[in-house]
Each structure stands twice: as C-alpha cells, then as structure tokens.
Computed example of a mutant assay.
Amino acid sequence: MGTLSRSLADADPSNTPSTRALKVAGEDASGSQDDARLVLRAREGERVAEELLYRRHAPSVLRLATRLLASSDDAMDVLQDAFVTAFEDLAELRQPGAFRTWIHRITVRLVHRRFRRRRLLRLLGLDRERDEVSLDALAVESASAEARAELRWLDEALRKATDADRIAWLLRHVEGLAVDEVASACGCSPATAKRRIASADAVVLRHLGAAKEGGRR
C-alpha cells in the first residue's frame, strides 16, 4: 500500500490514484444554468422539467448514496426519497442553479437517517442482511488493478470507522468537498467535520500500521 500510505501525507489526499478511480466528471457552468431553468419550470408545476432534473442528477445521487451506504438496495431507496423530498421542497431552493449541490445535501441527510435506522433495527434484533458494495466495485472502468486493490484495502479500513466519520471522510477525500461543505452536508459545525475526518484518517493509519506489522511477521 505504498501509494495509499504516501497519499495520507499529501496536501490533497483526495487526488490519489485510488480515490480518483471513484470519480466522474463534474458539472460545468452551462449545466448549472440549465438546472436553473429546469427548477423554475418545475416550480410552475411542469412535470417534464422534474423528469429532466431526475434524469440529469439521478446517476450522481445514486453513486453518492451507494458509496456512503455500501449497499445498492439502500442507495436505491435513498435515491427515490431524495428526489421526492427535493421536488416537495423545491420552493426552498434559493439558488435554482445550485440544484446539484442541494440534492446531494439532501442525499447525505437521508444517508445519516438510514444509518440511524440500521442501528435501531440492530438493537431490536430486526436488522436484515443487505447486499454490500465495496469501494473497488464502484471504481470507473479505466481504474488500474493497483487502484482497485487500494480501494479494497481502503474500504476494509473505513468500515472500522464510525458511520459519521466514514461519511465525512468520503465527502472530503472522494467527493472533493471543502470542509465547510462537508459540515453543511452533514449538518454539523466545520470543527466537528474536521474532527470526524481526522478520526477516520487515524483509523486508516492504524489499519495501515497493522497491515505493515502483519507483513513483517
């Protein structure tokens, strides 16, 4: 895990070969302008505009939810709930061109809710088996074998972190959000977001240390 271990000390750990393998191209300025027009039309009750917004952003919302939840079934539920919530509350969106950021924030909030539900069901003995999706399975097709191996290792490490810490880490280092954006998406202060990211970093480093120790035996 030489590349990954070096990346943790880099200024931009979100730009490592393994985390880049999870990313797809973002939205440009013209996309935001198109979103603004579609949001305004959707506010007027135009169903076609809602459908177009869904088609444009459903893939990225589903990828985000799947990465955070590590479950395709749960991610599909969050996808549907996110758009239902977004369209019901569309009048609250102050900047129509920021629909992508807004729907992703709603998605993260629903992911946190889903994790709370999982914990409750586990306490009640009602937790069900779910399909688990590892980070390497979500890599882009062009990802190298080395990058996929690192993602499998990283997925194993992050599963030892708390749900809140894992979400914050992925938002920062995979989604590329700034700390204040992570805080906004998670509904916490920037200081709390920093602590969660640092806590997940520590988990990854401990996992790395354990792997190195095991390799020397």
Rank of each mutant, 00 (worst) to 15 (best):
G2F: 07
G2E: 14
T3A: 10
L4A: 00
S5C: 00
S7H: 05
A11L: 15
A11D: 12
A11N: 09
D12F: 10
D12M: 08
S14M: 02
T16H: 11
R20G: 02
R20M: 10
K23C: 06
G26Y: 01
G26K: 06
D28T: 09
D28A: 11
Q33D: 12
D34W: 02
R37P: 06
R41F: 07
A42M: 11
E44R: 12
E44L: 09
E44V: 07
G45E: 10
E46D: 15
V48P: 03
A49C: 09
L53E: 10
R55N: 13
R56F: 03
A58D: 10
P59I: 04
S60Q: 12
V61M: 06
R63L: 07
R63V: 06
R67P: 04
D74R: 15
A75M: 07
V78H: 07
D81L: 10
A82W: 03
V84D: 12
T85H: 10
T85W: 14
F87R: 06
E88R: 14
D89L: 07
L90T: 04
A91M: 00
E92C: 02
L93N: 11
Q95K: 14
P96A: 14
G97E: 13
F99Q: 02
R105Q: 13
I106T: 11
V108C: 00
R109L: 07
R109D: 08
L110E: 02
R113D: 08
R113V: 04
R113T: 07
R113N: 08
R114P: 00
F115K: 13
R118A: 10
R119E: 15
L120R: 15
L120C: 05
L123I: 11
D127M: 11
D127E: 15
R128G: 07
D131C: 08
D131M: 11
E132N: 06
V133T: 14
L135N: 03
D136M: 09
L138A: 03
E141Y: 04
S142C: 13
S142M: 10
A143D: 07
A145F: 00
A147I: 02
L151P: 00
L151K: 05
R152K: 12
W153P: 00
E156P: 00
L158P: 06
A161E: 09
A164L: 05
R166E: 08
A168L: 08
W169G: 01
L171R: 02
H173C: 03
V174M: 01
V179N: 11
S184R: 08
A185Y: 13
C186W: 01
S189W: 02
A193M: 03
I197K: 01
A198G: 01
A202W: 01
A202Q: 09
V203P: 07
V203G: 03
V204G: 03
L208Y: 03
G209L: 01
A210Y: 01
A211V: 01
A211F: 03
K212P: 05
K212C: 05
G215V: 00
